[in-house]
Design a protein around this nucleic acid. Sequence first.
DNA 1: TTTAACCTAACGACCGTTAGTTTGTTTTTG
DNA 2: CAAAAACAAACTAACGGTCGTTAGGTTAAA
Lengths: 193, 193
Amino acid sequence: MTRKPAIEDAALALFASEGFEGASLGRIADSVGIRKPSIYAHFRSKEDLFLSVFKRTLRRKQQVLFRQVLHGANRPFEDNLYDLAEHLMDEYESDAETRFLLRMSYFPPRSLHDEVMGLVNPFFEQAERSLTRLLQRKENAVRLHPGGAHEAALAYVTVLDGVLAEAIYGSRDTAAKRLKAVWPVYCRGVLRP
Amino acid sequence: MTRKPAIEDAALALFASEGFEGASLGRIADSVGIRKPSIYAHFRSKEDLFLSVFKRTLRRKQQVLFRQVLHGANRPFEDNLYDLAEHLMDEYESDAETRFLLRMSYFPPRSLHDEVMGLVNPFFEQAERSLTRLLQRKENAVRLHPGGAHEAALAYVTVLDGVLAEAIYGSRDTAAKRLKAVWPVYCRGVLRP
DNA sequence: TTTAACCTAACGACCGTTAGTTTGTTTTTG
DNA sequence: CAAAAACAAACTAACGGTCGTTAGGTTAAA
């Protein structure tokens, strides 16, 4: 009957909404229902707690993302990419893990900047490579504008980040409007005429 | 011989790199070369200092942006939009005001969330409207894909945020690659074939 | 002589962290 | 099988440090 997962969950939620410096161990302990020093039975320090939560989150999201991209059925690739963007946009509102991951990738704790980026960068680079490989498969490549699959992949992640940015400082509604507007533009831009 | 502007400059730099909670009045005072309580000769509280800096920054950036978009010479609009994106991307690296504005728009101090967003949202909404109006001018509108100027404007700000996102958690170099990749896609997507 | 801009000293609150203790469960042993 | 030992997970108390903030004094310009 250990509270370790509960501590990680509470830390995740508070880190996501208040940032690393803004979230205190006292508040984390409160929201679990334990005393502040009890956290040290499971984690050596606040940074240790943070890294543990961050790695766990990265691992989970990697799995989910992998399944979602792989499990592409046999629809046109752009439909799958649209669904993925819509899914991530929705998740930013509903899922604290997504908010946490995004916020900490943008602005990691200063003392852990290099370590966090050492974890985040491979994550996004691999996602980008997977996407490029998907677009290079010949049934997709023939439908692409002769600019190349890599260009289409880079453009996609850029558009995706733009939509997510609006989900962060705007709302799900305004982000949805952006996605609806940018998507036809993206498709005309990457698909063969 | 008042240090008020110096305090604002130091606060801006520290807020930009450490966030609101991460930047302490002590460090701000240190970097100005005064004592911490002296700040209270000019600002009623840390939040007051923040809001003062934030409003000043918003005002300045609004002017700069306005001039840059207006002063469009008579080149094709897409060239001006490209230059603007490149300019903002470079600025994120070189200009603390841009980093400050972007970071605080994404993740404002929790206690000031509503007030900050009440300032930020009109700023971006007006920028978006200006852009739409620019694209609606007939010499530009005739060159646009029949999806409309508003779609092209929304798509642009989305793409721009995507590039800036990479400037934040990546580097100027990787952001530049994104811009180079996404730009032909954007142009094919919004221009009449 | 008033006023503005700085100073020193100090406040209470909260921060992350450590030490040492209690408690209840699991494991080992007579 | 029951007693004893070991262990893990919580606790209380308190640490030194830093936080934002206030009170009150000094100095120099207006």
